[in-house]
Design a protein around this nucleic acid. Structure first.
Lengths: 228, 228
DNA sequence: GGGGTCTAAATTGTTCAACACTTGACAACG
DNA sequence: CGTTGTCAAGTGTTGAACAATTTAGACCCC
């Protein structure tokens, strides 16, 4: 982790990164309200800087801003999840099918992602497992060779991850999904794109219905504060 | 233009809107640097509020932020244009093909868009023509019935529009494209989706190559200030 | 007791003034 | 002619203040 360009980031961006991590790791739960003054103080920055940071995250969809009521961690509705999975299908499957040439560029990263996933699962580290899971899918998008699409997809995945961290503990065993990523990788690297796309479609369907099922179970009751 | 909810918008958002309009209308040209203090003063807001506004626009891609060097209106490169058109094809064509049912919801708006376009063209009002042109295509995306996709697309179109406004005056006659939108509408409303998609694909190719050609002509020379 | 209005505290929205830090340009210097 | 030092201009960040709004509770009436 060499910081090639020293400190070339504004404090506001750094604060946004810290909060982003906390949200995606589940430390800050969906629905939880964030108060400017204590939060800014706890990170040792001014209120204005904190406002810039929350501005960034609200435009990313991770925080929700209500005027004069403050910001709160966003909460995915069922409709949101369906919307996001609709997009995932729309974007990931053509990505795989577009992986005709020069796969070599992405394949090593993919291999690394699903291996990391399997390792995390075997250690029961669900947060890290979700991280690698979604990283695998994000890498698939890279086949489109389109930076704007990548960053959009990353934003989507961020929103989804927020909803997934709540799911991870208990309930369901993400481990049973282990072989899928490996299989996808094998099909991809051997050029069986059609089969890979089909398996991916099924995998996404599974993933969506699993998430929706778990979300349905815990309707309310876990919102960490007043509603916003 | 009734303001249904009175003033329920933060000043920073309003400032962002004003600047967005100015950029999309071409008043603020790509490459032009924006200085916080004079700009904030000219709009009668504080520097911090202006900073929040520029934060918003830079995350939308309309402004580019370089640390300690200020913000400038973004400048589309050839690669950017290709990237955006790649996405347009990827998103608009499936949108048309997905328009099997309940088209009635979008059709009136589409009609309105291409009629407005034709009217603007006949009045030689190119800015407004570009506006209606892109609105037509944005409406197509609505067939996907996906809010996130719509907002992403709108962002893309915003970037493109910035590059297009420079093109509008002189050079080429956008008027010759008039019948295309009408034709697309007719094919769509009569359910000939395949034909519509084919025409759309061709239309996008035309549009892209036309934009790229014009951009190639005016390489540099028109950047409104120092490079950033 | 239930329901409505009013007051006051808390929190956000916005402004202002100051200072630290970086950049870019210019001049002095070798 | 290139290097280095200096300096003004502009951004990044802070802290304190005030305005605007929401929220909760006190109060009152029926």
């Amino acid at each position: 982790m060499e910081r090639s360009q020293i400190h070339r980031v504004s404090v506001a961006d750094q604060v946004a990164s810290v909060l982003r991590q906390r949200i995606l790791k589940g430390e800050l739960r969906p629905g939880m309200p964030l108060q400017e003054i204590p939060l800014a103080a706890s990170l040792g920055v001014s209120r204005n800087t904190m406002r810039e940071a929350t501005r960034i995250l609200s435009l990313e969809g991770l925080l929700k801003r209500s005027i004069h009521r403050g910001v709160a961690v966003s909460q995915l509705s069922l409709q949101d999840v369906q919307e996001i999975y609709h997009l995932r299908r729309m974007l990931e499957i053509p990505a795989v099918l577009a992986a005709k040439s020069d796969r070599s560029y992405v394949l090593p990263d993919l291999k690394n992602a699903f291996e990391g996933y399997e390792a995390a699962v075997s250690e029961r580290d669900w947060v890290r497992a979700v991280e690698f899971d979604l990283q695998f899918h994000t890498l698939l998008i890279r086949f489109h060779r389109n930076r704007r699409l990548e960053s959009f997809y990353q934003k989507l995945i961020g929103e989804l991850r927020m909803g997934m961290v709540l799911v991870d503990r208990g309930h369901d065993d993400p481990g049973r999904l282990v072989p899928v990523h490996r299989k996808l990788y094998q099909l991809l690297s051997s050029g069986k794109l059609k089969q890979c796309a089909a398996l991916l479609a099924q995998h996404l369907d599974d993933s969506e219905s699993r998430l929706i099922r778990v979300m349905g179970d815990r309707t309310a009751g876990t919102n960490g504060g007043r509603k916003i």
